[in-house]
Design a protein around this nucleic acid. Structure first.
Lengths: 134, 134
DNA sequence: GCTTGACTTAGAGTCAACTCAAAGTTGTAA
DNA sequence: TTACAACTTTGAGTTGACTCTAAGTCAAGC
């Protein structure tokens, strides 16, 4: 079978992106990715553009964006030029949330680290390491 | 009805901690919190110690620790003194994961911000703001 | 021609963490 | 004394994001 140049199978995309084949098909099914091109036998052929979008979507996902919002963003991309301001707004709002999220993580981590220091004190006293013999 | 000093009802704890009453009862049911004291009518009375534990557990939760691990930690607390080294190890491992998680968020966010800059360029060109008339 | 392996689909199942519902009890207030 | 609000328990339902299953297609190699 003739294969279009630069296109990848679902298996190859899975290997490349770290998503599972299941997840790649699932993303298409829910309308996050729309209508990946098919080979004559019906198999998916991911174009370079698809890969690039997927890789960026993974960043959005990894920063906590829910699939529903990712669908909005992907829909804007699909509908072509002229909505860059909308995409920008969406990403700016997301950035705000991620920054707030990171801040919250850091604040909570500080409390945990404070407790860690406490336990370090206790365990240092329990071991004799804190008062080494000669 | 006589109320023990310093104890709070489930409603008060919910208000104070931000957890829902449902969640507080759920946490007890799954063994994360064990056997909160009861008033004579069977109502929960949270003691100051309970509150302090809950507030710390919320920090663990907010930094992504799954309930199963929180149960381990809470069990160590319940079983009293002498296992501080175990608690410390658990918290140190968690800290590692949270730090890695924050790092990943920051890395992914950097990619998103790069894309944001791109869109800023495009939208600046589309508006005439970038080339103000006279 | 037959087997194998990579794919296809639609639908069902899983998981964590809640969240809600139903039915019952209790103490106070009108 | 009757209504009400705040609780109780157990079990069921929900959500988001997968993850798996079953049944079928198709091209290549033996």
């Amino acid at each position: 079978m003739m294969i279009e140049p630069d296109t990848l199978t679902v298996q190859q995309v899975a290997a490349k992106t770290g998503l599972s084949e299941h997840t790649l098909r699932y993303y298409e099914r829910i309308g996050l990715l729309k209508s990946i091109e098919r080979a004559t036998n019906g198999h998916r052929r991911y174009a370079p553009n698809d890969i690039r979008l997927i890789e960026f979507l993974i960043k959005l996902r990894a920063t906590g964006m829910p699939l529903e919002q990712m669908k909005e963003y992907a829909a804007l991309i699909r509908s072509g030029d002229g909505n860059e301001a909308d995409r920008l707004r969406l990403l700016l709002e997301h950035r705000e949330r991620v920054q707030a999220n990171i801040q919250a993580l850091q604040d909570n981590l500080a409390v945990i680290e404070f407790k860690i220091e406490g336990y370090k004190g206790i365990t240092a006293c329990l071991n004799d390491d804190s008062v080494p013999a000669e």
